[in-house]
Structure formats: structure tokens, C-alpha cells
Amino acid sequence: MKRLFVDVERCLSCRSCEIACAVEHSQSKDLFSSLKEEPGPRSRTKVERDTKLQTFPLQCRHCEEPYCIDACISGAVSKDPETGLVILDEDKCVGCWMCVMVCPFGVIRPAKEKKIALRCDLCQDNEIPACVAACPTKALFFGELKDFKKKLLERKDTKSKVKV
């Protein structure tokens, strides 16, 4: 199962991933035109900075037992049995923010202007998610866990620990 991994130490907090995500989920999918759209483009991934000042992009973890599914009062959130992805049906979403209320990672964002919750869908229509394609330092990786581990080991200077 392909997943999104973050090689935290490579993150330079340039926020290219946020911009790419917002553009990818805009109507025009084009940076220049998207800025004029109403409602404006919004990112579903966010770069956060922890107490050690390390930054990293955070987005839906596609949890094993997602709180957001139990919490959704409109039956709009479900887990795809094949891919394991937790998907929001935006047409069903009523903007009650119950999922925002329960997400322990705080990565579901209320888009008040659209009255729907925004969450990472791993850019299902693309071969690789827009954020991964946009990351200039390759801090974001899309693939199998074993391949990501291999990649980390290849990096001799690695201090990152793979926690699974």
C-alpha cells in the first residue's frame, strides 16, 4: 500500500507543499488563475513547527480506526477497504465540523466559505500527490514503507528514526 512519508530532517519549511496542494485542489489547478478564484485556494496539508523548532508537513494519516468516521453525522466519511484511504464525500459533507472536533492531528480544516471540511485525499487522480512532486528537498516520499526505509538507510548521515 502506497503511503505518504516525511523525512522530517529534510524539511526546510519552504511550504511549497502547501502551495502545490492548494493549487491542485483549486478549480483551475493553475497557480496564477487560482489566486483569483472565489473561494480562494486552500491547502489540505500544513507545515507545523514542533517545540524543537523542527518543521514538517502534516496531513491526514488515514488512521486505522479513524475517529472522524464515527463522528461524521452525515455519513460522508468512509475508509476504502482496498486502499485504506479515509475519504470524504464532499457532496455529503454539511460542514458541521464534527470531524474537525475529533481529529487528533488537527489536519482536517474547516473551509467555512465552502461549508465543507478539507482533508488530504493523496491526490487520487495523480500518479504522485502534488505535495510530493513539489518538495524541493525530497522530504516527502510517496511509496511503500520498505522503500522509504531503504531510502533513509541510503542516506548515511541519517539521524531520523523510522517509527512504525
Partner: peptide
């Protein structure tokens, strides 16, 4: 915590 919320093997971070 990890068992219920994040054990998809996708959260790799924080040395």
C-alpha cells in the same frame, strides 16, 4: 495512541 490513530505505517518523523 499510535495503535488507534496512526498505525498505517505512514507516520515517520521526529528523530
Amino acid at each position: 495512541f499510535r495503535e488507534t490513530v496512526s498505525l498505517q505505517g505512514d507516520l515517520v518523523k521526529m528523530a
